[in-house]
Amino acid sequence: MDRNKLIKWIKTPAKMGNKYSLHAVYFCTGCGIIEIPPTITTRWDAERFGVTPAATPRQANLFLITGYVSLKTLKSIIRTYEQMPEPKYTVGFGSCPINGGMYWDSYNTIKHLDKYIPVDGWIAGCMPRPEAIFIAVTHLWKMIDNDMADGYKKYRNNYDQYRANQEKVLGSLDWPPLFK
């Protein structure tokens, strides 16, 4: 461990802790999830970066949206995202959450995920390879270092807008607003 890193650990332990201990929600939305098992197991071993799957959103701080998001899934995604403790980071995985991908004209999927929940980064491709996940993780580290991964703050500040967007596509939501 070099000296700069040590100083950072002492100055901002919370930030450093969040950086090197990314526990991902084990939430399979679409086909992208197929890239996750090799990523976390022997072949690519995500654990050496501190990235491990967490059993519940309460224990996690990283949310990988792996693939297209149907309306039904969106509801669960929102609920799961709201249950994660802050600070929390979202990464869209694959082209579908970015702009709808091959489902761009589907009646049943949403096209821009970041209208409904804040997304800190995207991994483009169909499918992105596991290496892309690691690049995304290192990018996320930089963003956390520079306080740029602030999606959760955005969500809090613009909650009314997000909630309105959510209600527009999902109708009424059966849980009370997260922030009042």
Binding site: A14, K15, G17, N18, S21, T42, D45, R48, G50, N61
Partner: peptide, 20 residues
């Protein structure tokens, strides 16, 4: 696998303490 650094639980615990 290569595995996480041996200090990983400490990092995890620090991260958890910081979360709301």
């Amino acid at each position: 696998r290569y595995g996480p650094p041996i200090t990983q639980p400490v990092i995890d615990i620090i991260r958890m303490f910081s979360q709301k």
